[in-house]
């Protein structure tokens, strides 16, 4: 009896600490985003005077409307959406096809070509040679530098190949007996059955495209019209003063901005941060189950 009491007491103490730790960790994960959201929906002047802590002060949504009057912001949102849509569909299409052909034993030179692909996971040219080579290709200040380097990813091909390999082979065999070619089998049988892995890859590639900014920084920083949302935010973060000037200038011209709720640089940073992170947060609950599934397929293989 004594033993049981002792162990249940220590159990209780452990539980208090354990739940306490996870509560704290959850708070640390949520609070920064919550704070930025609160600031972005606060009245800029009130927020600057009193400081936001947990709740918005003087609730307003006009900040979101107003930041789009900033030079180039709307265009950068468009570029981010474009690269995400084109890049993601391109990556999914290319990797799906490659993942499929690499499951075919009769494919000529399969082992060598597969190795040719996988090696790129471990060796890369590195930043400088890649930069110089892409420059020689004319990819500098070119939209396609956001797309082409990401089209074929060995990691995604492995995931897809592993997924297709565990599909029942009987359907494909009977289709082949009926005289269907590889392309027909691919589009009629493999692709429809592979939707779970397509969703997984689309999520990974999509978030990757949306979040990517370093290529903008080294390949396209000279071309304003190619600035992505992420890089726009980076510019606002690193040039707080220039932003303040731009806002002051806009205030001089713009009738709406002359109203009391004119933006502060801090409100702009917070609002643009929110706009940049919102798409990921908004689709996160829907894609969460796919990512867990996705990395498990990879983990089993790796």
């Amino acid at each position: 009896m004594g033993m049981v009491t002792k162990s249940s007491t220590s159990r209780k103490i452990f539980n208090v600490f354990n739940y306490g730790f996870f509560l704290m960790f959850t708070f640390i994960c949520v609070y920064p985003l919550w704070y930025v959201l609160s600031y972005a929906i606060s009245n800029p002047q009130l927020a600057a005077q009193e400081g936001v802590t947990f709740l918005p002060i003087g609730f307003t949504l006009s900040n979101f409307q107003q930041v789009f009057t900033l030079d180039g912001l709307f265009n950068s949102l468009l570029i981010s959406i474009l690269r995400t849509v084109i890049g993601t569909s391109g990556t999914v299409l290319c990797c799906m096809w490659l993942g499929y052909v690499f499951t075919k034993d009769r494919m000529p030179g399969r082992t060598i070509l597969y190795r040719f692909l996988i090696i790129t996971m471990y060796i890369s040219g590195g930043m400088i040679p890649t930069f110089l080579v892409y420059r020689a290709y004319g990819l500098l200040d070119n939209f396609w530098v956001y797309i082409l380097p990401y089209l074929v990813s060995p990691y995604y091909v492995i995931l897809i190949k592993t997924f297709i390999e565990q599909l029942p082979a009987s359907m494909e065999e009977s289709a082949m007996l009926d005289g269907a070619g590889s392309l027909t089998i691919y589009f009629r049988i493999i692709l429809p059955l592979s939707m779970p892995i397509v969703a997984t890859i689309a999520v990974f590639a999509g978030v990757g495209q949306w979040n990517q900014w370093f290529d903008n920084h080294i390949y396209t920083f000279n071309t304003k019209s190619l600035t992505t949302m992420q890089y726009m935010l980076y510019n606002y973060l690193s040039e707080a003063q220039r932003l303040a000037d731009e806002l002051a200038a806009a205030r001089g011209m713009d009738a709406i901005a002359r109203m009391q709720q004119s933006l502060t640089p801090r409100t702009v940073r917070m609002t643009v941060t929110m706009i940049t992170v919102l798409p990921v947060l908004a689709i996160y609950p829907f894609f969460q189950r796919y990512i867990v599934k996705g990395i498990m397929v990879g983990a089993i293989k790796g």
Partner: peptide, 22 residues
């Protein structure tokens, strides 16, 4: 906890920097 603690992985480094800055 599992859901919330995974979110930061999907946030870009720019956003992380912006949050840290804020």
């Amino acid at each position: 906890v599992q859901t919330v603690s995974t979110v930061p992985h999907f946030i870009s480094w720019i956003i992380v920097y912006s949050l840290a800055f804020a």
